[in-house]
Amino acid sequence: MQKKIKRRLLRTVFCFFAALFAVLGTLFFDGKYYAFVSLILALLGCAAFFFRLEKRQAFVGELVLLAVMTSMTVLGRVLFAALPGFKPVTAIVILTALSFGPEIGFLTGAMGALVSNFYFGQGPWTPFQMFTWGLIGFFAGILRAYLKRYRPALLLYGAIAGMAYSLVMDVWTVLWWDGGFFVSRYLAALLAAAPYTILYAVSNVVFLFLLAAPLGKKLDRIYRKYFSLSEE
């Protein structure tokens, strides 16, 4: 048990530093290929979780559930296609992480981004989207003990996740644009995306508020019915 927690902590720290390195690296180190470096980092981050899924023990039911939750994020994007920015995707990723832990949380976010882009268009943004959504799920899974207990904390997390998504994606926009990080350009991008950022945060809060109780109940029922006696 102790070992498990330690390992989990190490992984968190690794991810955190990877993200930090990506941001700081582009801020302070001299060079021109920040966009390239960050792309590689995002891919590596996703790959780490994918390979982790391959290595550890996993039950068939778990994999199928992962596929269902991934499909749900895609469906969320398809069904709300008419409302730009107002999507239940992040909320579903967070709630999955609450029920099934950080790893499944990350994978749902990452796979959701990958598969839904098959419907909405792949692009150079795909790896970043995968990584960002994945991280949102991952941290929700890490904090799930608190987020499950305190509803306001969950809603707050949703709001922060919505803003963080915008902040990170804008970093990438600027890197893409200039090949380097310029604060003025970043601020301009943030300003331009501000309505969306607010919309992300609001939609996350709204969907978390609406979905947390029913979705949690349904997932718990499935867990009781299919997993509690046999596999885990």
Partner: peptide, 24 residues
């Protein structure tokens, strides 16, 4: 080959999405 489980989840998802849309 390198990621058989991820590949399976991916395959299941590709099958689920149109099916779930139809069911909705």
């Amino acid at each position: 080959r390198p990621l058989p489980r991820v590949s399976l989840v991916f395959s299941l998802t590709l099958r689920f999405v149109p099916l779930f849309l139809q069911k909705r």
